[in-house]
Write a protein that binds this DNA or RNA. Sequence first.
DNA 1: CCCTTAAATGTAATCCGTTACTTCCATTCT
DNA 2: AGAATGGAAGTAACGGATTACATTTAAGGG
Lengths: 349, 349
Amino acid sequence: MEFYLTVESITIFKLKVGSIMANIQQVAEKAGVSAATVSRVLNNVSSVSSKTRLKVEHAIKELNYEPSMLGRNLRNSESRLLLVLIPSISNPFYTEIIKGIETIAIANHYNILLCATDSNAERDNIYFNMVKNKLADGIISMDPTINRQKLNELAEKHPIILCSEYEEGGSIPYVTIDHKLAAYHAVKHLIKLGNKKIALINSDETYLYARQRREGYERALQEFNLPIRKEWIYHTEHLEFEHGVHAMRRLLQVNERPTAVFAVSDTLAIGALKEINVNGLHVPNDIAVVGFDKITFSNMTNPTLTTVAQPMYKMGCTAANMLINRIKGNQVESIVLDHELVIRESTMG
Amino acid sequence: MEFYLTVESITIFKLKVGSIMANIQQVAEKAGVSAATVSRVLNNVSSVSSKTRLKVEHAIKELNYEPSMLGRNLRNSESRLLLVLIPSISNPFYTEIIKGIETIAIANHYNILLCATDSNAERDNIYFNMVKNKLADGIISMDPTINRQKLNELAEKHPIILCSEYEEGGSIPYVTIDHKLAAYHAVKHLIKLGNKKIALINSDETYLYARQRREGYERALQEFNLPIRKEWIYHTEHLEFEHGVHAMRRLLQVNERPTAVFAVSDTLAIGALKEINVNGLHVPNDIAVVGFDKITFSNMTNPTLTTVAQPMYKMGCTAANMLINRIKGNQVESIVLDHELVIRESTMG
DNA sequence: CCCTTAAATGTAATCCGTTACTTCCATTCT
DNA sequence: AGAATGGAAGTAACGGATTACATTTAAGGG
């Protein structure tokens, strides 16, 4: 009896699965053609007569058929999935880039797998395996904390593009801006406004962009014969708001208080704004502030934040195009995009 | 000559592809066993002798073999991918939820496909097809603008969970909070502070949560015998900052100016804050403000924002667990989680 | 009316792993 | 020693679509 029940339930299950989705074979039978012909119709191969095409299309509608990506992908050994690696979803810097990537991806019939590594090496491994496993066709990495060596190894056999963060002299193609020049412009702007004591809130200099932005900061100061003072350079471990608050608190305690601050990210700059406000000082009259990235919220603060805009949407588009080209087997060249200084209230007296 | 070159390049390509990744057959040959045995080793099936297991594991290492997800998924007809639908990546409300989903997903050997619909029906279709196509095993939808009818149809044959936004009396399981009660608490808080003229910045009431939050707002006012005045209720089409600014501008022009504002999202509330500041008024002394969602930035504004916290991380975890259960074929029940009023500077005199 | 040729369609192999079923072999029991 | 039992491994079908190659069909030329 028990055995009978089991058999029945299996039958029901099979029936249900069958009803969920027809396969190409069933469509072929219904249309009275071979599976090959159905496949040709699906892929718009020219050599199908219009009569047959119509029959097949009719059968497809009738059966509510949708081709299985799994079968197709196995055969074509592609997944049409792009892996996008970011350090953390909560960082607004990435949102526009991702939009760019997504737009290009969809236009090329790809989809994106957005993955936050949270600077977790285990996650890295999972995601790297997805490419090895053919579950993704390529990677756009925006994670500066990623394991370089493993990434390079992977890049030998799989398409990878770096976005924003890259490796100097490395072999993996990248899209980025000229961080040094961008920082130079930002600081020069502060100098032109008459500031002579300019502080830098930088992040961890293990990251290339942090080193480059400091170089730009120093270059601007040198060019105008302003002193580079250690007390005015503060390094934060992370880019979050709280670290900006903390950095600014320290900078306000320095003997000779700076009259301007350049922070290497908007979230840091917004933290600085807050701390300056809390201390009863005025931005920009007492201290001017410049951020970096032009995240959405940089426009919502009070005062609004002067910041260096990276062409994020374009960066995303470019990275996606490069990756898709790479997947097609083409050679691609690294690209440096232009930045733009967006002057707003935090530097307008 | 040209022909020769072409042939050669094809050969090279083929060789390269071959070298990229061994398949189960090659591993089997190397280990001197059948593919079935290799598969058993991979899947930890008990009936493999330790000698054979060792041989196979050795061969796997030697060939640097990684099983292809495509083959495996086709056979098992699962993709181990969860589709997460959000209206827009740039909305910070979703970040914590996504983290929760991701954590649970990874713990269960799933990965997430994060997809922004940007309220674009075409995109909806693409994503729905991914499930029909077996490219994803199920959907967590957080998009209130999604096509209800299509979603319901899809839900008949595929696992779907709604997160935050749901359908009253619908058949799709959901996770949410009690929006009405949450709004009631927020407004009651404003009343307890002595406010008698309380404005509401609501979003489009085609969304269930918007209707429910207004009900909560009205219930609180009624309970304390305060008037519900039309001029104090403003509807915005979207949730962005600018709409909050605009709404507040209007509310400040009303004859009898409200002394407090409850906005149904933090971004709207932050817009309101900004506009109040711009008009030389003080928060909370002139006008108190309460938001909704407790997004990261609600803590970075000046003053910091009092807001209703949804348990976003937990919501994400819950939704993911529900979906995975659904995929396993289990029945799941809808869940209503607790909210919390976070009192900060924008209501603390 | 037959032959050539091209277009249209079918056949079958292939992509890669999983698993029900079968076979083989070695214990253990009588 | 021969049968019964069970453990270990192999065989082959399967999942769904694609495509090189083979075959059929129809049209055009002589």
